[in-house]
Structure formats: C-alpha cells, structure tokens
Design a protein around this nucleic acid. Structure first.
Length: 680
DNA sequence: ACGGCTACCACC
DNA sequence: TGGTGGTAG
C-alpha cells in the first residue's frame, strides 16, 4: 500500500513568486532616476549580431548578472522553505512546514494586527458583499473558521507577504505572488494581480477558477497540445476537461499526458517543489538566418570557437562558484541542404563526454559538428574547403553542457589516501582548474628547471556507465573516486594517447614511480618524491552495431589529479609504450587526417611515453582489492564492477564468483607487471 | 508581433 | 541512452 498521506497534496502550501518586469526593475535599481518613469528595456543588439535579452552574458551590461538568478532575491525567498528557481525571475516555494509551524505556534487569530502587505492580499472567491475589502481579507486570513487547509493557506499568505516585504527592503525589487495548494494553482494566481500584489487560491475557489480559465492559459497547454484540445475535443476551458474520462484522455494523448490532463482539470498537480536553485545545463548558441548562413567549415569553426569560449567560461564559473561539473557536451545545429532530396531533414545533434578546457571544448564541438554534418549530407562528401557550390548552409549553431553534478564535499577516501601518500598530489579542484594552457606551461617550466624532458604519467579513466551510479553516490555525499579526473577525448583526435572505447573492453592500468617500485635516482634534483599513481581505464561498452557514425571514439586520460609535480625516472621505462596506445594512435592518425587543417593549430602533441598495464576489467579479480588499504577497497570494487554494487558492498561472503574461480592465485602484484605484447 | 536565445521536459 | 521535439520566459 502506498504511504498514507491523505490530503497531503491538498494540504501543501505552495507559493509562486514572480518578479515584476524584472529587467526594467534592474535598470531602475541601477539608475534610480528612472524610477517612476515609464521604462522599457530595449532588446539590444548583442554579441556579434544577435538579438537578445536573455539571461546573462550580454545582459550584464544592463546590470543583470547571471549569478543573480541564484542570489539576492532567491536568498531572501528561500528563508522559509524549499525554493525552486523556475526561470530567471520566478521561483516556487514550498511553505508547508513554515505554515504548519505558524498555525501551531502563532496562528493568525492570535495576531493583534495583521501586517499591511498581507492584508492587501487578494483572496479568490471571497464574496464581495460590499464593505471593507481589507477587513474581509483580514477576516479570511485570521478568523477562518473553516478548513484546516485554508488556514494553512492563510499562514502561507502571511509568510509570503513578509518575504515580499523583505525582498523589497533588501533588494529594491518588487514581486508578485500566488499562494495555493500546488504549483500549478500558485503559478496561475501569481499572475492575476500584478504588480507587487499577491493572490490566494482557497480550495473552494478552484472549481470556478478553472471552469472559466481558457485552456491555452494553462501552463503547458499554450502550444500544440492546447490547440488539439480545443480543435479536436472542443475543450475551451480547463474545466471542460472534466467531461472526459481519464481513459479517454489517455487514449488520445498517451498515458502520462492523459492522466496529467485529467488531474489538472480537477486542480490537482502533484509536482514537488524541487530544491534546486541552479540550472541543469548551460548552453550558448546563435542563429544565422537567411544569407548569413555559414557555408564553410572554417566559418563554422570560428563561430563554434566563440560559442565554446562562452560556454567554457560559464562552466568554469559554475565550477568555481558552485563546485559543479558538467559531463556531457552537446552540439545542435540547423541547416539547409539544397542537394538533398529530403532537404527538410533536420541537422542531427551530437553529444560526447565533456572535457574541461576551452580548447578541448572547441575541438570536441567541432568534431561533433563534422560528424553530424557527414550524416546530414549523406553521400555528399565534406571537403576541407567543403561546399564549393553552396549546396548547404548552417543556419544555427549551439553548444550546451549538461549532466551537471556537484562535487561531493564529504569524504573522498581514495583521494585522501593518495594525498596522504603523496602530499604533492593535486586536489581534485586544482586538477580541474588546470586548463591545457596551464598544463603546458607547467610542463615547460619543469623542463627548464630540471633540464630533462618531462615524463608524464597519466592515468586513464573513462568510467562509462559510471555516471548513474556515481550520481546517486554523489548526491548522497559519499565518497567517490573521481569523476573529477575525467579527461576524456571523446573524439580521439587531439591526443596521441587516444584510446578507442568502442573496443568494448575495459582496462586497468597501473603505473608506478618511486623507490618502492624500483627506485631510480632523481637526476639532478635532490628531491625524493614518492609518488604513486594508480590509473584506470575503462572503456565504454558499446554495441558496435549501434555505433555507426554515432559512436565517437574516445579516450580519457586520467589524470591530472595524480599528475606528478616532479619528474622522475620510471622503473620500467623503455618498455613503456603499450599496445593500447599504439593501436589507438594508428586510428588516431586516421581521425587526424580527415580533420586536417583547422585542427592542427589547436591540438597539442602530448608526451607519448608512458607506463601502462592493461587488463580487461572482467579479468581483474576482486580478491586483489583485499590487498589494498581497507579504506579504499569498497570504492575500488565499485569501480571495477560498478554493476555489482550490491554484492560488492554487502561483502563477499556469498555469491558465486566466476572470476576468482578462473584465477588461482590472485594478487595485486600480478597486476603490476608490465603489459605483455598482445599475441592476437 | 516576432525572432533570438536559454532552459526544461516528455517521448521513443 | 542519446537524440528529437515541444514548451515557456
């Protein structure tokens, strides 16, 4: 049986708060002389030709800061309950708890005097029998004899009035609000009396409200679905939906939409107020209408570079400010193709793992674009100059970053372990802040300093389906191995060490330096570094059939986290090159060759030399994990066998273990032997 | 009124 | 899952 929460939906207290003409207010706050004047914020011809008024980047010149979305106003509004940012200037608040508390501890009827702002509330359905409006509102709010739920709404209205007053006092912005039992109704209400007013939706008023509400006024029904309801079903108001059974609505609009329609007709909306203040994705795009369409790869590349630079800045900001990392890079474009018969085909979008660093984002985006373009053009080849005859044109480009997760602030046992072992290890954050430019500068400095070529040992990680697992654990604040350290090259075209993760296998590579693994003198420097790195690579298991052009060869180089701050001689140097990278380098050459020109300037040649031991992940026996420090065992087990999380974490007492059966004497030492040349 | 831009979501 | 389309501000 479902958890008994009778009436819980109807007993919630939700507020929707909407800034009044936000852009105008921003200007008026910035230029107080504009207050009281008729004002409008003109759309300004922004950034290299586009129009806009969008959130931030360009609008900063108006005084609108992107950070505003999560700050100032929200900081005030979120004081009394969970707050969800619905757009740049709207939020939802769940005031249920605060209202319950007020009702229990200091109910409105105990108020000597109702606050001014609250007494100016609009109460839907309040019968107008003449007399004093304010007094009737005060009565409804303070002397409500009826439903407990309406009393909660009254408390919510009083709380919201207070919040709005605080917002005005602390930010100089006015806002309007709606208070109701769910988001849908609260949102409807907040727009009913503007500006700087608030509206309450008692339960008893819902029927009349929806009965007369034109269907297209309802959120989500302003488009095609609303049109269909009107023309196909003859539904004019939300209330008209009451004439249709849930089954009938499902039959026409699908199970989910059907049920949703049936519910909203009754004023029910189950959506929770998400406690999210930050955006789930970032994007940067531009259209090139008409003759402005881009007709060469070079021009696409230039624009893409700009868009990616913008995106990269925002990602870095998000990382610095919010400690969040995005994991997916997506490229969207629009195009026309005069050559193709089905010239109305859409330009496909493409995505790949996101690697931080402006240049990497630029390179990856451009490669995604080229992959998509090849599919879009079908048989028509894309030459380096491409499109001599203007057969195609790009009318829109955008890059976006999604799958953003917060870096855990809690424990990170593996990280701690290695930091304990090696104080010179970079922290995860430092690793991420390290762009390729800094990277190369660093290497250069070291080269000069030590008079020897820098030997980088890099660990690889491409924890593919790590994501979902990891996200859960991230959200739980538990430790995690990285994710920070991902440095994948999904395109496989910019690094010599590119590997191909279409291989369908996973490998574990361990490289070691330091005296305990066979010490070498450190050359001219007297430093004795004990640095160990354990690097892992796991390649995505992808279905080859599915791949076609879709799959992007990728690689990851672990890295930077465990990157050595000093160079040292590796015990097995000389045998360092591994087949893994040899193979991929060959393929890489292929990639490189068809990308040619535009690429060469940006791609940096990396140190090809490295130590690596390569194993298929299925061949790694979990028993070896027992030889590692206990504090990191669980994490490594998860890493090696993320799909067996339950078993791994519940101990290894029971459950068949096919892998160990095949391996008589598992020892971690076995895994530290250099790679054998592959026979097949 | 409309196009440009950003962002979220449902569906398959 | 990634990719597409719809919706809204």
């Amino acid at each position: 049986m479902p958890v008994a929460r009778p009436e819980s939906c109807n007993a919630r207290v939700i507020a929707h708060v909407d800034m009044d003409c936000f852009y105008v207010q921003v200007e008026q706050r910035r230029q107080p002389e504009l207050r009281g004047q008729p004002a409008a914020v003109v759309q300004y011809n922004a950034w290299k030709g586009g129009g806009l008024i969008a959130v931030g980047y360009e609008a900063r010149k108006f005084g609108v800061k992107r950070s505003m979305r999560g700050s100032e106003v929200v900081a005030v509004l979120s004081r009394r309950g969970r707050c969800e940012r619905a757009s740049i200037d709207e939020v939802y608040l769940d005031l249920t708890d605060a209202a319950e508390t007020m009702l229990a501890e200091s109910p409105p009827e105990s108020f000597g005097q109702l606050e001014e702002e609250a007494s100016k509330s609009h109460i839907l359905g309040l019968k107008d029998d003449g007399g004093d409006d304010k007094e009737r509102v005060r009565e409804w709010l303070c002397e409500n004899k009826g439903d407990h739920r309406d009393k909660l709404l009254a408390c919510g209205a009083i709380i919201v009035a207070e919040l709005r007053r605080l917002v005005l006092k602390e930010t100089e912005f006015t806002c309007s609000a709606g208070v109701a039992h769910n988001k849908m109704l609260a949102k409807l209400a907040s727009g009913m009396n503007k500006p700087a007013q608030q509206t309450v939706v008692p339960r008893s008023s819902v029927k009349d409200l929806l009965g007369s509400l034109p269907i297209k006024k309802m959120k989500q029904l302003g488009g095609k679905l609303g049109d269909s309801l009107q023309s196909d079903l003859g539904v004019k108001t939300v209330g008209d939906l009451l004439h249709y059974s849930e089954g009938k609505l499902q039959e026409r609009y699908g199970a989910n939409t059907g049920t949703w329609l049936w519910n909203i007709a009754r004023g029910n909306s189950g959506e929770e107020v998400q406690g999210r203040l930050l955006p789930k994705s970032h994007g940067s795009g531009k259209t090139f209408p008409g003759r402005q369409s881009l007709k060469t790869l070079a021009s696409v590349r230039r624009w893409l570079n700009d868009l990616c630079e913008e995106l990269s800045e925002r990602l870095q900001l998000d990382l610095d400010k919010n400690k969040r990392i995005a994991h997916t890079l997506t490229l969207h474009a629009n195009a026309y193709n005069l050559s193709e018969t089905d010239s109305h085909k859409n330009f496909p979008s493409r995505s790949c793992p996101l690697r931080y660093g402006t240049i990497k984002i630029q390179e990856d985006s451009f490669n995604l674009f080229q992959a998509a373009l090849r599919e879009y053009l079908g048989a028509y080849p894309v030459t380096s100059e491409g499109n001599q005859e203007n057969k195609w044109g790009i009318t829109g480009l955008s890059v976006s970053a999604s799958k953003i997760v917060t870096i855990p602030t809690g424990t990170c046992t593996i990280k701690k372990y290695f930091q304990g072992q090696s104080p010179s290890c970079l922290s995860g954050m430092e690793a991420y802040n390290c762009t390729e430019d800094q990277d190369s500068d660093l290497g250069h400095l070291k080269d000069l300093k030590e008079g020897t070529s820098l030997e980088k040992t890099r660990t690889e990680s491409a924890l593919c389906d790590w994501n979902s697992q990891e996200q859960k654990r991230l959200s739980q604040g538990t430790s995690t191995i990285k994710k920070y350290f991902e440095d994948q090259d999904p395109i496989g075209s910019s690094h010599l060490e590119a590997t191909d993760w279409s291989e369908g296998k996973a490998s574990l590579a361990v490289s070691g330096k330091g005296s305990d693994l066979g010490t070498q003198s450190k050359g001219l420097k007297e430093e004795t570094s004990f640095e160990k790195t354990i690097t892992m690579t796991a390649r995505c298991h992808m279905d080859r059939q599915e791949q076609k052009r879709k799959s992007q060869p990728g690689t990851s180089s672990i890295l930077k986290f465990f990157q050595h701050s000093s160079s040292s001689q590796s015990p097995q140097s000389g045998r360092g090159t591994d087949h893994d990278f040899q193979a991929s380098s060959a393929r890489d050459e292929l990639q490189r060759s068809d990308i040619s020109d535009g690429m060469s300037n940006c791609s940096r040649v990396r140190e090809p030399k490295k130590e690596s031991w390569d194993y298929k992940i299925d061949e790694v026996d979990l028993a070896i994990v027992d030889e590692l420090p206990p504090e990191i065992q669980d994490e490594l087990r998860l890493w090696l066998h993320p799909q067996k999380r339950q078993m791994a974490s519940s101990g290894r007492a029971n459950g068949p273990k096919s892998t160990s059966a095949a391996k008589p004497c598992p020892s971690i030492a076995n895994y530290f032997l250099p790679l054998k040349k592959q026979k097949d």
